[in-house]
């Protein structure tokens, strides 16, 4: 395109500009990641010695029922949390996008408010809400005194609630951005052509919010899948996720090669999710 600088012809300034970030990326991200990746093909040869042999045994172990089960459970919990986030996040984003203009900024700030507190503190706060003497159970007790406290904490439910709580803004914001960009006259055109409000959401708003929804799902699902703190603090013995197992391999079990293999199974799954959901460039059109 004319008028736009082509980096291939003016490589000097371009390289100067991205040189430092590129070095940073190589040194601090790719190198350690590469090292862990190499570890996933290694064996423990002594108490403190590891040898990279190219073995696939570590990956084979990840398929053992115990670990496969936890992996599937992690996928299920993260997937469920993503679905709930979508179910809650889409209407919230829709409401904010169509709120009267003076309301929008305060509402957006309210959605992002949890970001401004530390994750650990937020998670403890959630524990306070969910535990036997917590907020929810006190309300339940007030309404139905005969009922035993609901076992909300240390349970899969608590993990899903926690994951949704932590990741909801990641769902709301991209969807809001997509809806905010949408031309309002498209909605009017749909109504004008006889589609009611629900049909308009289905046939016009949802498809046009598609890229935002995909981004929201990705931004929720990927970090939820790798969650460590939430299942650790809110989950019971049966609701640990893959990150908790990885942590145990590296620290308590001192089995780095196996931990590395598990970690990379997570990376592969993330890449798969990205490949499936990442926004594609629109196909070149005639």
């Amino acid at each position: 395109m004319r008028g736009r600088t082509d980096w291939r012809r003016e490589a000097g300034p371009f390289l100067a500009l991205i040189g430092l970030p590129l070095a940073w990326f190589l040194l601090l991200i790719l190198v350690p990641l590469g090292a862990v990746w190499a570890l996933s093909f290694a064996i423990n040869t002594g108490v403190a010695s590891i040898e990279v042999t190219g073995t696939l045994a570590n990956y084979a172990r990840t398929l053992e029922p115990t670990y496969l089960g936890i992996l599937l459970k992690s996928l299920a919990l993260a997937g469920l949390a993503t679905l709930v986030s979508l179910g809650l996040g889409f209407p919230v984003a829709l409401a904010i996008a169509f709120a009267p203009p003076p309301w929008r900024t305060p509402l957006l700030v309210a959605v992002t408010l949890p970001f401004w507190t530390n994750l650990l503190i937020r998670t403890y706060a959630l524990m306070a809400v969910l535990r036997d003497e917590g907020l929810v159970n006190r309300v339940v007790a007030a309404l139905a005194p005969d009922l035993a406290p609901l076992p909300l904490l240390y349970h899969d439910v608590a993990v899903v609630v926690g994951l949704v709580y932590v990741h909801l803004p990641f769902m709301v914001l991209p969807i809001f951005a997509a809806l905010d960009r949408m031309d309002r006259s498209l909605i009017e055109a749909s109504l004008d052509l006889g589609a009611g409000p629900l049909a308009t959401i289905r046939h016009v708003v949802l498809p046009l919010a598609g890229p935002g929804i995909r981004a929201g799902v990705l931004l929720t699902f990927v970090p939820a899948l790798g969650s460590y703190l939430v299942p650790d603090l809110l989950g019971g013995p049966g609701s640990q996720m893959i990150a908790n197992v990885i942590e145990r391999q590296f620290r308590r079990a001192d089995d780095w090669p196996f931990g590395a293999a598990l970690a990379f199974v997570l990376v592969y799954l993330t890449l798969l999710a990205l490949a499936l959901l990442a926004p594609r460039r629109p196909a070149a059109r005639a």
Binding site: D183, S185, E188, A189, D192, L193, V204
Partner: peptide, 15 residues
């Protein structure tokens, strides 16, 4: 959506 009229929008508003 219940009126017997249809509109041609200034910006066309094609989906």
């Amino acid at each position: 959506h219940r009126r017997p009229v249809n509109m041609v929008f200034q910006s066309y508003a094609l989906f």
